[in-house]
Design a protein around this nucleic acid. Structure first.
Lengths: 234, 234
DNA sequence: TAAAATAAGCGTACAATCTACGCTTTTGGA
DNA sequence: TCCAAAAGCGTAGATTGTACGCTTATTTTA
């Protein structure tokens, strides 16, 4: 068996195109947003789409997803996780492409909103999305479901908050994820009983006259919680 | 742009090898088992390995996983689900191969044990596994974690029981998955309170003198439970 | 043939957690 | 100065979880 490279095995196997697509969620006071792009290349030029790219020969899948996020939003260090593969034969009429979808979470601040302009993208309300190409609609639905389920046993939503935050802010976050109202008073009790929050002296007055105390996660406790998996407010 | 096929797009993208690997769990009274194979081809010939195959150009990822299961165990209609991708650049020294791992669950009966002989495979106790090739050890650990987590909010374990089963059998199943003892009496109460079981007139006497009543899932209730997601005995 | 052994099954009591909701506090604006 | 609005505190009752004793049915064994 001659070897053109140092890799003589598996010569008969088919070679395919492998892509990553990113479902980028942003959290804002008034709801959960999704970052969408107008596709630059054919097929489906100019239609709304998730952002993605092909995985390169010398690049891990994870790195590919990070690269996509970086080049299309400028962001690094964002929480991102694999959602799953989309591997149907005819899912992309352009060729046989298998995509490994990833979803990312970020908190949306004024500065992040510029991303939309700089990268010709747009933030949409998750329940007011335009038509998407290919199976991207399905990916978004799956990502939302996974996000909600995950929020139950992991403090995942916390990725979406600034370092200092108020308890009402945290509650709104969960309300947005679960799409339903949570009792103010019970939510507070439950969260505080977990002993992962440190109360700070400062107050945030942007959303009420009285102002709400700021809190911060206690890193060790938070880490512990991530590992053990907590049963969260439903 | 000339087109050799009807698919003129994405000509510059790298083409990779995409595989599926299957983590096949079997449930038996005395524990959870894993089906392993002695690899027939180089590299790693004769070493213990999960079973897998390359995804073909005209085959969906899901179909590829089903094909693997069928050709290596003869089984179809087994619960199987995607675990995730293993996409590191150097994970397989034989070539750049990305694998999408899947895990399958089945109940182990005498007839299924012949699989091991027919297909030159062997059932191992999940906590007494031999060394595995590549990152297969990691895949198994991840699959076990996912299985346990999933068992909490989905009646997933039920895939592993025969149509008629006793409550003690169901309990042993959960004990095996969670790797800890569950209180007989409380388990029964919890399960019965879900109202998904129909008590049959027959008893099963294979595992006790007194014999235990057989039950069956009420299909509609069971389906409801799958969709809503239940919070299960921890 | 009676007693012992064993797993199944039933019930009860106490603890922990969830849920609903009233009341007080703080502060900016009318 | 009073009102409105959100934050924060507390309690009571309902629900669920947890520990564990007791009875039942049946086979084995003494």
């Amino acid at each position: 068996m001659n070897k053109p490279t140092s890799k003589p095995f598996y010569v008969d196997a088919d070679r395919l195109l492998l892509a990553v697509d990113c479902i980028i969620f942003g959290f804002e006071r008034d709801g959960l947003k999704l970052l969408l792009f107008q596709r630059k290349v054919a097929p489906f030029q100019n239609e709304w789409s998730l952002i993605g790219s092909f995985v390169k020969l010398k690049e891990s899948v994870t790195k590919a997803a990070e690269r996509v996020l970086k080049t299309h939003t400028g962001l690094t260090n964002v929480f991102m996780e694999e959602l799953g593969s989309y591997g149907g034969v005819d899912r992309d009429p352009g060729d046989r492409v298998i995509s490994i979808a990833h979803y990312a979470l970020m908190r949306l601040q004024e500065e992040d909103k510029q991303i939309a302009q700089e990268y010709k993208a747009q933030w949409f309300d998750v329940d007011k999305l335009p038509a998407l190409i290919l199976d991207h609609q399905q990916m978004v639905e799956d990502a939302l479901e996974k996000l909600r389920r995950k929020a139950r046993y992991r403090p995942i939503g916390f990725e979406l908050l600034p370092e200092k935050f108020t308890i009402p802010q945290l509650r709104v976050l969960y309300e947005v994820i679960y799409q339903r109202a949570l009792d103010r008073r019970n939510f507070r009790k439950k969260i505080l009983s977990m002993n992962v929050l440190e109360k700070l002296a400062e107050k945030d007055k942007t959303s009420s006259r009285k102002g709400a105390y700021l809190y911060r996660f206690i890193p060790e406790k938070y880490q512990e919680m991530v590992e053990k998996g907590v049963d969260f407010v439903i």
